[in-house]
Design a protein around this nucleic acid. Sequence first.
DNA 1: GCCGTTTTCGGCCCGACTGTTTTCAGTCG
Length: 575
Amino acid sequence: MKNQEIAGTFARIADLMDILGEDVFRVNSYRKASRVIEELPEPIEDFAAAGTLQEIPGIGKSTAEKIRQYLSSGKVALHEELKAKVPPKLTDLLEISGLGPKTVAKLWKQGGITSVEELKEAIVKDPSRLTEIEGLGEKKVQQIAESLAFLQSAGGRIRLGEADRLASALIEAVGKCKGAKRVAAAGSLRRGKETIGDIDLLCHAPASAAEEIIECFAAAPDVQRVLAKGGTKGSVVLRGDVQADLRVVQKVEYGSALAYFTGSKAHNIRLRELAARKGLKLNEYGLFRGEERIAGADEEGIYRALGLAFIPPELREDRGEIEAAIEGRLPELLRGEDIRGDLHMHTTASDGTSTIEEMVEACRKRGYAYLVISEHSKSQVQANGLDEKRLEAHVAAIRKAAKRYDDIEVLAGIEVDVFKDGSLDFASDVLAGLDFVTASAHSALSLGLREATRRLIKAIEHPHVHSIGHPTGRMINTRPGMEIDIDEVAAAAASNNVALEINAHYYRLDLRDTHVRAAIQKGAKLVINTDAHCLADLEMMKYGVTTARRGWATAEDVINTYPPAKLRKWIAQKR
DNA sequence: GCCGTTTTCGGCCCGACTGTTTTCAGTCG
């Protein structure tokens, strides 16, 4: 699948054109094409083969031609031409906050700077070489020096669960500041993206209290360094080099500010275009007809005034949600409270840290109607995987424990290993004795697209498999996992009555959002599991739900929202 | 370069902040 390579090529074309001073709208069209291709769940080769490239929004005749060029030759002529005009490492300078294409062009043409290394050296040894450049002064050079230092220390985007934890502590701290009301996270954290660049918080307060709230925020426990501190906006660095921003707005602006700071940027742009077409103006202070504010206190009012159904934050990515809202065909997304059980968790029998009883009690406290205990199988030696004999004893222990509860169904399952060729770690007769079988790949995760897809489909076609666990095996920020053709996998899952897992741990979130959506479109069912190895892991369910929502999932799409009888019926289809 | 519920040509989101400037360009979110 060449999607990421092509998206990267278009992003580099946009950067190069930007520095060369080309028309910004042309530049933006390449940026948009890059983003759309990056998010495509299916191989772009499939679109090219079917002749449907131009049906992808943001891809026109010219871009489609360049995609075909790349697919046939591995290169795009325009990219090669642009590269020849610019020093090879110049575009790296755009990574530095505060440096945009115009300044980078001037650094190069007037200052002879062609790389980050040369810029660093100039700042230390010869700052006058920089301040002599038109439009640059001492302060700007100082700002660049600070950005460079931050760039080197910052760890990049953090995982959803990590950002959630930091934000919760910060929200609590700001909530205690005098005058602060409705403190909430906005930005990509509110949209539930799998990784978060910085934490955006918002609250409302009387104007007289705003400055004091910013002071109070800057003094919060996890704050390591204060970047900026004004009348309504503060910006800090938390421990772990994560940036956090707080904005204080007036109550009447809260909804428009929340919508604005939640984004995504692409979604906001579409909303503003829509407003403009209706003769209205949308900004962070409200929705206006002339001078009159016609909405702004809450988000619902803004969407309503624009003639749209309310769009949940998880959908705000400009992936067709605005069109769906106009036509009234937004899905009714599943909610956290729809989840009735967790079908994948471990105990001390393999590599978990809690007993069967402890897991059951924790699930009862969560109000679940059922759960499945599913240990690793024998090939997972490092995870203390069970062989046939230990499995038999463990199943007996689960059955015995199950008898003690009449308010929750305790089912015996397994997380059986899927080998490289798609065969399983246990024979059919062993699997036949279990209530629910999750099949997962744990090794050989660097298979190519075709082999990985065949591997999963073979497991899906096994008569005793109910679910595929963490289908790609990716670990966010650590390893990419297997590339799979989600359309083929989902079609096989749909016709074999196998649910594809959304592994809810924030290290995995696998299936990812775009895969979830593609799977639903192919008619596949999903299951959201925590894969808990300890009691606290059961809390991860919310991240799986968020990911499912980002994939436009309804409760009907997710089998562990079913009441017990309906779930039993679904499982029985296999037999 | 893309796109169409005013359009196949002429638009393309909006405001704050910063630093460099004497009225604005560049960057960011």
